[in-house]
Computed example of a mutant assay.
Amino acid sequence: MMKKNENSKETSRQPMGRKTKRAMAVYAALVLMMTAGATTVYAAGDPLTVINNLSDFIFGLIRAVGLILLGWGIVQVGLSLQSHDPSQRSNGFLTLAGGVIITFAKEILTLITG
């Protein structure tokens, strides 16, 4: 019916070294700590309270991403000032501005909606 390709090679498992196993275990432990230690959104009797709790949780995650971008933007601007690279400087300022906007997204939305 179907012939196997003679040129195909079988893949085999590569053995994992001690360092790789340790790194994988540390990575798995960090992932478990991050997911298990996350803030839990509890349901309440009032549906509006549930939505507010979920909104606070999501905006907290967004604020964390914004702070990371803010820090990375500061690093990029600092490196560009040291190396006198104008394109890296513009990227750094754009990342810095994006980080500020993302960090204060909830306050900006509250200001817009009233």
Rank of each mutant, 00 (worst) to 15 (best):
V50G: 00
L54R: 14
P15I: 06
T35S: 11
L54G: 06
G71V: 03
M33K: 13
G78T: 08
V26A: 10
L67T: 00
S83A: 14
R63S: 00
F93Y: 15
A29P: 03
G66F: 09
L111G: 10
L54V: 08
K3M: 07
N52A: 03
T35Y: 13
V65S: 11
L69V: 05
Y27Q: 10
A28R: 15
G45C: 01
A28Y: 08
M24H: 06
Q88G: 13
I112D: 05
G71H: 05
L79F: 13
I51P: 02
G98H: 07
V31L: 15
N7S: 13
L32S: 01
G99R: 08
I62Q: 10
V75M: 02
V41L: 07
L69S: 04
A105S: 13
A64M: 12
E6A: 15
I58D: 01
A28I: 12
Q14V: 08
V50A: 08
G60A: 11
M33V: 11
M1K: 15
P15S: 14
A44W: 01
L67A: 05
G71Q: 05
L67C: 14
K9S: 12
E107A: 12
G99F: 10
K19Y: 09
G37T: 08
G73A: 11
A23K: 11
I58F: 03
F57E: 04
M24I: 02
I108L: 15
N53D: 14
K4G: 01
R89H: 06
A97E: 07
A105V: 03
F104D: 05
A105W: 11
I62W: 06
S90Q: 07
N53I: 01
L109Q: 09
N52P: 00
L32K: 05
D46I: 12
P86S: 10
S12P: 00
L109A: 14
R18D: 02
M2C: 05
A105M: 10
V75I: 14
A29Y: 06
G78F: 11
A44P: 01
E6D: 15
L111A: 15
A25D: 05
L111T: 12
T20F: 03
L54T: 14
R22F: 08
T113D: 04
R13C: 04
G99Y: 04
I102E: 09
T20D: 11
H84T: 00
M24K: 15
P86E: 09
I58V: 14
M1S: 12
V75D: 00
A25Y: 03
K4A: 10
N52D: 07
S12E: 06
A25W: 05
I74S: 04
D56F: 04
F59G: 02
D56E: 09
K4S: 01
A29C: 02
L109S: 13
Y27D: 12
I68H: 01
Y42W: 14
L30F: 09
L54F: 15
S8P: 00
I68F: 11
L94R: 04
I112S: 03
V41Q: 08
G66I: 07
L69A: 12
Q76V: 01
V77G: 01
G71K: 06
